[in-house]
Design a protein around this nucleic acid. Structure first.
Length: 110
DNA sequence: AAACTGACTAATA
DNA sequence: CTATTAGCCAGTT
């Protein structure tokens, strides 16, 4: 059940700017719990639907929407991201320029 | 307590 | 570039 890690995870995810995305591993690292990528996904799974946490901005390390039990949820996630301006390539991967770079924010997408 | 599970990853081939 | 493998770790059964 909800461990204290969840709060750390949600806190970091909320920092992801609109129109940007981050990976599970990246979130875990920033939350101060390295190698807990899977737990990040687990924590987000408990939300999906009702919260102020922008769960849709979290993808796997390859920049793709993580494979889920219900494909409809993946489509929903993609729609949400495209709504905030994130673009995907033909293969279903988010373009590099949308990856969130904490602190070292250099250029805006486009 | 032991085995199983999963919205993960990095390393190899 | 894609596919396979082994490591990962909290939550469930």
């Amino acid at each position: 059940m909800a461990s204290d890690h969840y709060a750390r995870i949600y806190k970091v995810v909320r920092r992801i700017p609109r129109g940007r995305v981050a990976s599970y591993g990246q979130i875990a690292e920033l939350a101060g719990i390295p190698r807990h990528a899977r737990q990040v996904g687990y924590a987000l799974h408990h939300l999906s639907g009702d919260s102020d946490v922008p769960w849709q901005r979290v993808l796997n390390a390859a920049g793709e929407i993580a494979k889920r039990a219900y494909p409809e949820d993946a489509r929903w996630q993609r729609d949400l991201l495209e709504e905030e301006g994130v673009e995907f390539d033909v293969r279903g991967r988010v373009l590099r320029k949308y990856f969130w770079k904490p602190r070292g924010r250099r250029r805006q997408p486009d």
